[in-house]
Design a protein around this nucleic acid. Structure first.
Lengths: 253, 253
DNA sequence: CGAATGTTTGAAGGTGATCAAATGGGGTGG
DNA sequence: CCACCCCATTTGATCACCTTCAAACATTCG
């Protein structure tokens, strides 16, 4: 609604550890084992590097909007994003939250127009990968193409998991699954699996999980009282990760 | 549950019109403007054709199962499929329904293992596209690669629509959106947009839409009483498509 | 410090689920 | 061809989970 203006101000983004620090090239970027360049030889990585532009996106700023012409994919270098779809009634549905090393914009290739809005949840930095030039590299670097296909496929798989979550999980299970998912993604990046910040509002969480903000609040409180979590505003500590995983998997009781 | 045995018996599959008849090659297949070969020149289509195997899948038979090793993509030639995910508790979530010209198996590329079960809703026929050989063609036929990327992207977009449906639509709106979606897909294939068969059970529909079978039944009855539909078992006539679309879009009242 | 926004908590209500039973169709075997 | 059985579907009554509405409280940011 009230889109704050988007001057690119200073960044105040301090990860809990300094694992996977992003420098100004794929080779020096701590994320290249997760991100698009995964598995590339040094020389190929440099070729990819040459077509990539890097820039900052301030908090609450759009990386792209629904209907924007598709020209490039984006990799999150630093920070977090959310993607959501809005309809004519103003209803929104958050489709996902993206963190460093994750790719955005793949839904736009089919129509040459972005199908989502992407907004930075905090001051962030992205790598812009012009798609036409990427396609040229596909011809020359088979490994790159293969890995790109994997990434697209994994995005399909990720969305299927969201469908499962929304289609047949109860509210408490959804929250648990959401937190377990965040936990494992942070862990994969060298951060703590047990302590992290929720970069999104309760409203975003609720929207993503198909719940109201009140339900999210109540359920997080319940998980805290049940001894699975410690919560201080957006600071989260998972006290009993196995129990949370059982809850998420529906194998509790 | 009760998986009927899968002898490949005779097919009794009569489309409402004879549009998009499938013959034994891409060139002669009425679907090549929708399917993977879209936009290919005749010579390239023949090259693609050579790597494709065709076979029948009897009703209730699996095309593939969760965990199966990924070797090929599949295009529906004749018939209908459903894909669903099952977890350890036996819970299922239908991810989608696929009809002729649509591609299955793209979720398996990321892990080399299928992430869904795919089952024929009726006696069906599929084109098997060995992925390793398809990758070889990608190098030689840029148009094919570009179109393949479009298809994957559209699958991402399709799943996003399901997320929106499950995440913030009321039950009646979900049913309406589901029927409008089927209608437009049949229309795109040269069939009637107003009259078609529901190839899946009410249970499948309910599972897909995150509703119980009873809710599906009640809501279809309601739409019938409201004069939007005529229903005779699985035979469906959309009497007021614009109204159904308004309902699906949430722009009614 | 004050306003705006985000979050928590409480009470009441509604949508869709659950439980239960009747109805109808399709397939199979006699 | 018919009778039967099984399964899918419909319909009804009750219930529960989550939403809605409301208000207090906390936090962030200018």
């Amino acid at each position: 609604m009230n889109q704050s203006y988007c001057s690119e101000t200073s960044l105040s983004n301090s990860p809990l550890s300094n694992a996977h620090v992003a420098h100004n090239s794929c080779s020096s970027c701590g994320l290249h084992q997760l991100c698009l360049p995964m598995g590339l030889e040094e020389s190929d990585m440099q070729r990819l590097d040459k077509i990539i532009g890097r820039r900052k996106v301030a908090r609450d700023c759009h990386l792209y909007r629904i209907g924007d012409r598709f020209t490039a994919l984006y990799a999150v270098r630093v920070g977090h994003f959310k993607t959501y779809r809005a309809n004519l009634n103003g209803d929104r549905q958050v489709i996902g939250f993206q963190m460093n090393g994750e790719l955005l914009g793949m839904d736009a290739i089919g129509t040459d127009q972005h199908q989502c809005d992407a907004i930075a949840l905090e001051d962030s930095e992205i790598c812009e990968i012009p798609f036409a030039r990427l396609e040229e590299l596909f011809v020359e670097i088979p490994t790159l193409l293969r890995h790109y296909h994997r990434i697209m496929s994994q995005e399909i798989t990720r969305e299927q998991s969201v469908i499962v979550l929304l289609g047949n999980m109860r509210a408490e299970q959804r929250i648990a699954a959401f937190l377990v998912n965040l936990s494992s993604r942070y862990f994969a990046r060298g951060y703590s699996a047990n302590r992290f910040l929720l970069r999104m509002t309760r409203e975003d969480i609720g929207n993503y999980l198909g719940l109201t903000i009140e339900s999210v609040s109540r359920l997080i409180t319940k998980l805290r009282k049940d001894g699975l979590l410690k919560v201080n505003n957006r600071e989260l500590e998972v006290v009993d990760l196995p129990a949370l995983k059982r809850l998420a998997a529906g194998t509790d009781q």
